[in-house]
Amino acid sequence: MSITASGIRRAAPAAAQGGHIVVRGLTKRYGALSVFEGVDLDVAEREIVALVGPSGCGKTTLLRCVDGLIPAEGAVLVDGEIVREPRPGIAMVFQHFGLFPWKTVYDNVAYGLRMAGVESAEIARRVPQFISLVGLAGFEKAYPYQLSGGMQQRCGLARALAVDPRVLLMDEPFAAVDAQTREILQFELLRIWERQPTTMLFVTHSIEEAVLMGDRVVVLKGRPSRIHEDITVDLPRPRSRATFTLPRFAELRERVWSTLMSEAKKAEFQVGP
């Protein structure tokens, strides 16, 4: 299940670089209830920003706004263009995997390319490359129900990567898989990113994951939530299992932890809305 030598080869032609995300004054309300308010966020090209926050703080909602799936007040720009609906070059990886159960692994990975209008010869060339990039070679004809959760998310990842995105939006991508698989997938994603650095907005509720993946960790909290802290993660890349053992990793983890927990406690004992 690890990345094979052939899979590691750059699977896509040089990505059209770009992928600069700018969020300004983003506010999402459902009726009288504000989920988040006045969110300003910049993600540079090839940067990974991890977004953490207590459950219910609107991390996923924010991500869906950036993808253009739901409207919000304020502005989201990617490479200077306002996002009002899903745009090309922005791909999302879902917590629930979002695979089509009636499609095989091959057809699921091909889906994004087909929707983007890529010609079939090109699809036939690229799909196997991305399937082997995520370590699913040999499972092309399998249906999602025949795969473990980890393998399903590998497929979801391949589908997103195959469209050669400028921006990857990761919605708690490894939250639904077991702990060991999660770790394996984290390092595989890091290795894929090293091969082809892509801008990533990475929502997670795991502090370790946020510090491991991110160049920055942005903490969203409060009710309605705002960006509370923006912590730069100055850990060296490429990151690996050894990163966990660095004293600096522990420091950063503690810092994110204390920022989050002070709020979590307050929220837990808060009365009323």
Binding site: D67, L69, P86, R87, P88, A91, M92, F94, H96, G98, F100, Y111, G112, R114, M115, A116, V163
Partner: peptide, 19 residues
């Protein structure tokens, strides 16, 4: 969720029916 996946990948209405 699956309809949302289709939207995220910029599926047109006809493709949403077909796929």
């Amino acid at each position: 969720e699956l309809i949302e996946v289709a939207r995220s990948y910029r599926s047109r209405e006809w493709a949403l029916w077909r796929e």
